[in-house]
Write a protein that binds this DNA or RNA. Sequence first.
DNA 1: GTCATTAAATGACTATAAGTCAGATAATGA
DNA 2: TCATTATCTGACTTATAGTCATTTAATGAC
Lengths: 212, 212
Amino acid sequence: MGTSERRKREKERKEQEIIDAARELFFKKGYTATSMDEIAAKVELSKGAVYLQFPSKEEVYYAVVKGGMAIIRDDFLVAQKRGKGLAQLEAIGKAYIDFWTERSDYRRLMHENIGGTNPLESGPQGRAYAQLAGECNEIMVRSIKNGIEDGSIRPDIQPERFAFCLSSMTDGILARTESKGWSGRDDRFREEMLSYATQIMRDMASAGCVKK
Amino acid sequence: MGTSERRKREKERKEQEIIDAARELFFKKGYTATSMDEIAAKVELSKGAVYLQFPSKEEVYYAVVKGGMAIIRDDFLVAQKRGKGLAQLEAIGKAYIDFWTERSDYRRLMHENIGGTNPLESGPQGRAYAQLAGECNEIMVRSIKNGIEDGSIRPDIQPERFAFCLSSMTDGILARTESKGWSGRDDRFREEMLSYATQIMRDMASAGCVKK
DNA sequence: GTCATTAAATGACTATAAGTCAGATAATGA
DNA sequence: TCATTATCTGACTTATAGTCATTTAATGAC
């Protein structure tokens, strides 16, 4: 019988409905302010039924932000398509900043720090999310290596470390300017800082920048 | 009468006792896992009495981490004392990394993201904390300006922006390596990254690094 | 010393929300 | 028709931040 097959599809459709409802609520009210009861109500299910699909609220969160990370990954792949390594890296940097600038919904959600538990320990959705984040990192590292090979990036740059520092700087700026702690500036300020940060790193990576 | 004077001192002593108890518990179990009831029990007071001193758990948090930020500020002031601007900046960077490396207690606590609300809106303790963070930033900016004036730092560096990017990178690395999301490495990895990050920024700021 | 007034402290209570689970309901297929 | 299995329900448990009516203690005027 194709019954179990259909059941599986049913289950997946329902899972997607929950993710869609959660995304909408998370975007509107934030993660913490959204309750599982609200999500359940939105998909017209009981809370128990939601917990049948996701073991925890955190997993629902990762299922949602996974979508954002997938967009970033896809943008990175496009950015990596043309040009020398340095140009690829610049395009990747631009794609990253564009994403965070344009998708303020994802930005707010992804920087509303949850308990900060390890996604790898959260469950399948957390692992899928971490997987995508890892792919993004690999793409960046790949472009840096390309740049070193084609001579557009300084050979003494360490690809993995440089990529880590670069994305950490961006994330640090985003985290700070999101839950604006000390410097309560606006969107303009964030964009300026992101732009300045990429400029610094570009100059740094560029083969044209050497120690005298 | 010196009564109100004594009362005030009493109140301050009690406040300090609460902060001390909270620090110990936060260090041991983390912010989230520590309840106000536990803090109250530790100082042998009722929860209500604790709320007489602090309007919220968050304010207790800021009262505690304020201590860590004060240490950083003091270390920065010492680091700024001698040498040219670039040497000052390097010493500040080293002090920052040393603090986060040596004080894993403060590091864990200060990077266990709370709801991420604005300290300025939290209350007096939050404001005091933000004040100290601001001072740290000013010290860094000051040293960069010193460096530009004495010729040890590239004149085209923008002090405020550069300082912001530098500390954001460090914070970003710390945040990532603390609640290790994708790259579940160890202390060694964090220290390597922090060291690499400061090296990059030093090279960048150095007057010896110019675009060909 | 007495007592009204003010300050300090108590802890039971409220509110909120994540996660559980015994029992109800619905689908399947023999 | 009915046993079996899958799905769903929502009341319940647990945990904890924050409140507040009530009690207790200190103060100082007389």
